[in-house]
Design a protein around this nucleic acid. Structure first.
Lengths: 131, 131, 131, 131
DNA sequence: GTGGTCTAGACCACG
DNA sequence: GTGGTCTAGACCACC
């Protein structure tokens, strides 16, 4: 499970971790039932305070994204297909809307904006494959 | 100059104002040399503390977006056309790339993603016109 | 870390602190990675308002001189050796040039001016040692 | 009489003008009895508020550097040779001391610092001649 | 514990 | 009139 922290971004560390784990679950890169690393392990890898990771897990558990099995560990919770789809769509619409609004503010035409989007889509898609 | 503050968004007030003014300047809704409202005026209108606005202006001056004329007021700084274009493009590419990457992660095809983007573009564009 | 404030100098307190800390960093009296005193601590020692110190730190962070680690504290940022040397040289050349120009305007010969410079160098250097 | 204003320097405009006129007088580029431009004239040339120039003149008059002749204009006051020399030396020592202290802080040896000073002296001196 | 933000209100410098 | 600085004290987010 790849998680990257940018300590200069202004976004709180715990938020960055939550967002990335949630995104991993929604896009099924972290499948149902998969075990999450222990608090200590993840904290060590990310070089953050264990308390921060602990907070992250509590948050995600509260959200219903993960489930704690006492004495065993944390696992990705079961999500209904529809719920997952909803979450996916919501996440995607949110970010695409922001992009569209920015394009409008900058004064791009719909055609130019769509071209730019497609170009960046292709670029990052092929990069993704080779990775 | 329209500035809106959402006090529930979690984003600090001064950041919200900075972002909106900067966006106004980049998109040339606030043209070069235009005078900004006085600290007290803007503070009064937005119902925030003058010092908050003062902080905003200091920040923007530091960024080179506005220029102070002592005892007279604040004005939109002269930005070279190319520099402005660069800033615009960078801002736009950044957000569109994020959107594209998310679409890829979610597993959308290029065509579906582009359609979604165009749809949201049209929606927000017409909203903008009626405002 | 020694910082002295002259409240009668006309120079704003926050500027005095900024200049002194920056100078400490550039001259490596405050080495890379060194932790700076907390806002409250420094404010207490200098007998100024915490917000004044906070402003100082924000300013220095913006300049890239220090780095914030959330909830932990402030640390001297990593500056590349060359960058640091450049900053040093630029700072020095600037002030020495001013001195030389003034000497020229006043009508001193190169020899007399150089003597005066050396004399003042020695005077202030020995003072520095005893301090 | 050459006066240059740098509106980005942070030094108040009126201070910049005062310092430059005083320096002109001390170094005798503006000799005793020379007439200064009228408030309106200087304000127009420097593109500053006439009140600012007026303040400058009052300040200099108060300092004894210039003398007002009612209905005629402002003139450089008579200064005793010793007084002028003292002022010259004070001005020079002040700036050279600053340069020396900076050189010390940066860690230069006396020799290196003196060399740098001499080099900049020669550079600016020859430039001055051709001007 | 750390820093970040904001307020209310004061006084000063500048033009 | 303009912005700049500072204080005293509050509350919040983060680790």
């Amino acid at each position: 499970m790849l998680i990257e922290i940018d300590s200069h971004s202004g976004v709180p560390i715990y938020r960055q971790i939550i967002d990335q784990i949630r995104s991993h679950v929604i896009t099924a890169r972290l499948g149902e039932g998969a075990q999450l690393p222990s608090v200590r392990d993840l904290a060590g890898r990310l070089k953050v305070n264990p308390m921060t990771v602990s907070k992250v897990y509590s948050y995600l558990e509260n959200e219903g994204v993960v489930e704690r099995k006492r004495g065993i560990g944390l696992f990705v919770a079961k999500i209904s297909k529809t719920k997952q789809d909803k979450a996916k769509t919501a996440m995607l619409e949110d970010i695409i809307k922001k992009a569209a609004v920015t394009a409008i503010e900058v004064g791009l035409s719909e055609k130019d904006a769509a071209n730019m989007f497609s170009k960046l889509f292709r670029q990052n898609n092929s990069e993704g494959r080779t990775k």
